[in-house]
């Protein structure tokens, strides 16, 4: 039964990748990658049960946090063009 769950998650991950490839805006792609990350967390958890090694959940835990920080970092990079700045850069002529 965990095999079925794994296949289901993998299939929906593949569908989400289609959205990431189609776009059309960069936000669609970031969103697709975010969903992909959430599904990876669940896939790791299910794989842990499938192989009877539930210690995999530690990885899922860390992945959940990194996925969130990664999404925010990418969005901030697109909004400000820099990870350290807190306001939009005004690009002057010089």
């Amino acid at each position: 039964m965990f095999v079925a769950a794994t296949i289901g998650i993998l299939a929906s991950m593949a569908i989400v990748l289609v959205r990431a490839l189609l776009g059309p805006t960069v936000y669609d792609r970031v969103m697709a990658v975010n969903i992909f990350g959430t599904k990876t967390v669940l896939l790791i958890a299910v794989l842990g049960f499938l192989t009877d090694r539930p210690e995999f959940l530690d990885l899922a835990l860390v992945y959940a946090l990194i996925n969130f920080i990664g999404t925010i970092a990418v969005l901030k990079f697109f909004a400000f063009g820099d990870l350290g700045l807190t306001r939009r850069v005004e690009r002057g002529p010089e």
């Binding site: 289901g8 929906s12 569908i15 989400v16 969103m31 599904k39």
Partner: peptide, 8 residues
Amino acid sequence: MVVGTIGV
């Protein structure tokens, strides 16, 4: 999960 993906 699949329905959400179809929605996306």
